[in-house]
Structures are given as C-alpha cells and as structure tokens.
C-alpha cells in the first residue's frame, strides 16, 4: 500500500499549517524571532564594534551615524552590545524553559497517570512553588545558589516547571479516562506505550503553546534578575544589566535605557504573539 494513491492527503500538520498561515501577527512575530535567532548566531560577525571596545573620547553619546544606538559610560557601542546580548537572552530563555518543560512534563505525566502518593507529593510541591510570585522565587533561588548566568537558568527553570506540571497532569487526567485509552489497555498495551503514544501526544499542543509563551516570560525574569544585580555581572552585555547601568545616566542619556528596554520588549512580545497564534492554530475547536 503506497501513500501516493491517497489524493486528498490530510494530516494534522497540514491542517495546522493552513490555520497558522492565517495568524498574521504570529507570522510577523515568527519572522522577527527568526531574525533574532540569526543575530544571536552571527552577533560577533555583524557587530560594528567589539563589545568591550572602550573609547573614552566619546562616552554617553546619543545615537549617531557612527553609533546607531549611541554609546555607554565607557564609550562602548551600545548597538554592538545589544546585538550580542541577543545571544545571552535567547540562550537563557530557551535553556531555562526547556529544562522546566521537560521536568514539568515528566512530573506531570507521573502525577496524572499513576496518581496516589506520587501525585499528592508532586502537586503539593507545585502548589508551594505557585505560592511565590515568579521573580521572588527566582530571587530566593539565586540567594541560595549565588549569582551568575547558570544559576539564573536554574532559577527560571524552577519557576517555569510547575506550570508545565499542572498543564500536563490535567491533560493526562482527561485522556487517561477516555475510551480509546481503555481500548488500548484491553488490547494489552504497556503503560509506557499508552503514555508515550496516546497520552503525551494529546498533551503536546498545550505544551508547545505554553513553551513559547514561557520563553518570553523567562527572558523577562532573567533580565529582571540581571537588572537587580543577581544575574549577569559586568561587563557581560546582558540587556537587563545594560538597562540597570543606564539607570544611573537616565537623565542625560535616555538612549542607554531606551534601547535595551526596547530589545527586551520586542523579544518578549514576539514570543507571546507567536504563542497566541500557535494556540489558535492548534485548537481543534476553532475551525478556520
């Protein structure tokens, strides 16, 4: 039997693509994000100046043809620094949320599928984590682990984990009781087969949407931590850190706060728009 004899080839992926194409703002966000990813990869090649190239003859200058985003208190080119900051922010966001999503998904699967004491323990732990506002939890973790980018990743991962855990668990609970999972059990399928072939795929659209939305949030939290002096340390060109130093010169050099702020704003906004678009495209109830 070949797949070619099937003229109207329908697949969920094609259906998703068709719906996603209609999400104009999400497409726009995706394009910007792809550009950001390219910038993150090639930042050192495209940056006009080195990130630590001091030039004391031109400190705190506003935007000009030579320095598009102006210069900072040491005369470093702000445009180059923000370009290179993209790599840091995207890496932190992706790493933290990936770690959080994987651990949250695994815990959620265990809690939802096996129930019992494991479920109580995992869900109460999530409740504890949920009780703190995200940034405060992150600060608490940094306080324990010490500052530095690795610890920021860990902190952000911990605070994004419970959302995934709860999301996956609720999806598992719904799918576990469905007739097709019962049918699968009566066929003699093992638990792992049921979990990975039937229950996890059902939860997958939700995980994808939550994943995209969380990245924006994590970048924000990571930058906030750096802003508060708990994340990246000078002279790392981290957006939150640049913003934080710019605060001192807020009155006579607005550009030092404006541009890193804009960079954070655009990145987070794009991730959220993309998440919104994915949610609408993946929702089977919203046809066309």
């Amino acid at each position: 039997m070949s797949k070619d004899n099937n003229k109207v080839k329908f697949s969920r992926f094609n259906d998703f693509l068709r719906k996603f194409r209609k999400q104009k703002s999400a497409i726009f966000a995706l394009v910007i994000l792809l550009i950001l990813v390219l910038i993150a990869i090639f930042c050192y090649q495209i940056a006009p100046y080195g990130i630590n190239e001091y030039d004391y003859s031109s400190v705190l200058q506003g935007p000009s043809a030579a320095h598009w985003f102006g210069t900072d208190e040491f005369g470093r080119d702000l445009f180059s620094r923000i370009l290179c900051g993209t790599r840091i922010s995207l890496t932190v966001g992706l790493c933290a949320v990936t770690v959080g999503a994987i651990s949250g998904t695994v815990l959620g699967l265990i809690a939802g599928y096996y129930g019992g004491i494991a479920e109580s323990l995992i869900m109460r732990m999530c409740d504890v984590l949920f009780a703190f506002p995200g940034i405060i939890l992150a600060i608490a973790i940094i306080a324990i682990l010490g500052s530095g980018m690795t610890n920021v990743v860990i902190a952000v991962a911990v605070f994004s984990m419970p959302t995934f855990c709860r999301l996956v668990r609720s999806s598992v609970l719904a799918t576990k009781e469905s007739v097709y999972v019962q049918a699968e059990r009566s066929l003699g399928a093992t638990d792992s087969r049921i979990l990975f072939k039937h229950i996890l795929p059902a939860a997958f659209p939700n995980i994808i949407v939550q994943y995209t939305m969380s990245i924006g949030n994590s970048i924000m939290t990571a930058s906030s931590l750096s802003f508060l002096g708990m994340g990246a340390q000078a002279p790392t060109p981290e957006w939150g850190l640049i913003l934080s130093t710019g605060r001192t010169y807020m009155v006579n050099a607005v550009h030092m706060m404006l541009f890193p702020g804009l960079a954070i704003f655009i990145t987070v906004l794009c991730f959220n728009l993309l998440g919104d678009g994915l949610r609408d495209a993946l929702d089977p109830k919203l046809s066309d």
Partner: peptide, 28 residues
C-alpha cells in the same frame, strides 16, 4: 489479552483522533 477483544459503545470516543485508521488497526 488478544484472546478477548472488546467493541465499544461510542465509536466517536473509542478511536484515537490523532492516529490514522491504518495505525489504529495496526496497533494491536
């Protein structure tokens, strides 16, 4: 389990909506 099989009441709920008919029948 293969000696005894069940046909379910609700034909809408008893098939995994994410699998093709081929995969559903090949599953057992």
């Amino acid at each position: 389990r293969k000696e005894i099989q069940m046909i379910f009441q609700d034909p809408y709920a008893s098939l995994n909506p994410r699998m093709t008919v081929h995969d559903i029948i090949a599953e057992p």
